[in-house]
Amino acid sequence: MDLYNQFCVAAETSGAVLVDCKGPAEAVGYIVKHSDGGVLVPSSESFKRVDLANQLQKAGATLLEVNRSQAAEAVSGVTSACFAIADTGTLVLESTPEDVRLASTLPTRHFVLLDRSKIVADGLAAVDSLRRMHQRDMRNYIAYITGPSRTADIERVLTIGVHGPKQLHILLLDDWSSDLLEM
């Protein structure tokens, strides 16, 4: 199985929803359709290229300012993954800027755009990019995200969505971003 398919199987097993998108417009439509409240869109290089925030707003999304008081009210957060890890179905998010963290921790729904070509085999293969992130910036908050928030703390029964997002939607795109360090 190639890395892309391996990633899809593992991500679905972890409880993520995978969405094939022909282009950013389709991703925008999906996000709007699945957001019945405020949406957080932190800044990112890839978002800037297509002016994603603007597209979302035009499509009818209610954009909120990405700050603490607004973030607490948001239902959706939209981010872009630097890259993904195939064997565990994991997304890697450079979350040092606080707005990325607010958008990926507080809302109940987290939408992540991912370029299909940016997938590495496993946690060890991810170290190269992880190290380069550490070399690029002096301070880091880097998140590996695998599926929605979960707990089994009551009677060992797996329950989705305790403190973090209850839903993780991965929007798969081509020609979205090629740099493994870029959000």
């Binding site: 064997d87 002096m138 590996y144 979960r150 973090g164």
Partner: peptide, 12 residues
């Protein structure tokens, strides 16, 4: 296989 989150934090 892996937890939902692995969080790498360095510095302020």
């Amino acid at each position: 296989a892996l937890t939902s989150y692995v969080t790498w934090i360095r510095g302020a």
